[in-house]
């Protein structure tokens, strides 16, 4: 191959285009910290929360999980192929292990 290709240093631009600013990341980190604090409060007020306790905690956990995934790990801004690779694993893991625990009557307890 004798053609000369220019170095594609578009990497930086990619992030400037799609990613967040440093301030944005800091805001997300603060948000995550607040949710963590709320989670801890949840764990101390279980009796008052009653039926809302478990679903509430799981939702907060999921919010944190996806915030890190989408923003810190750039999945929101990156190619869908990366998301696909990860989500196949995630879905298989959640699916298989949930069924596995269900067959062992975990969720009845």
């Amino acid at each position: 191959m004798s053609t000369v290709t220019e170095q594609h240093n578009t990497h930086g631009d990619d992030h400037a285009d799609h990613g967040l600013t440093d301030l944005g990341y800091i805001k997300i980190a603060i948000f995550l910290a607040v949710i963590t604090a709320v989670e801890v409060v949840f764990s101390y007020t279980q009796d008052q929360l009653g039926a809302a306790f478990l679903p509430g905690l799981l939702i907060l956990m999921a919010v944190k999980f996806f915030m890190v995934l989408l923003y810190f790990m750039h999945l929101k801004f990156d190619s869908k192929l990366f998301s696909l690779m990860f989500y196949i694993g995630l879905v298989l893991a959640v699916g298989c292990y949930a069924v596995f625990l269900a067959t062992l009557h975990f969720f009845q307890s």
Partner: peptide, 8 residues
């Protein structure tokens, strides 16, 4: 892919 695998 490695991270997807780590999920399991």
């Amino acid at each position: 892919m490695f991270l997807g695998s780590e999920c399991l």
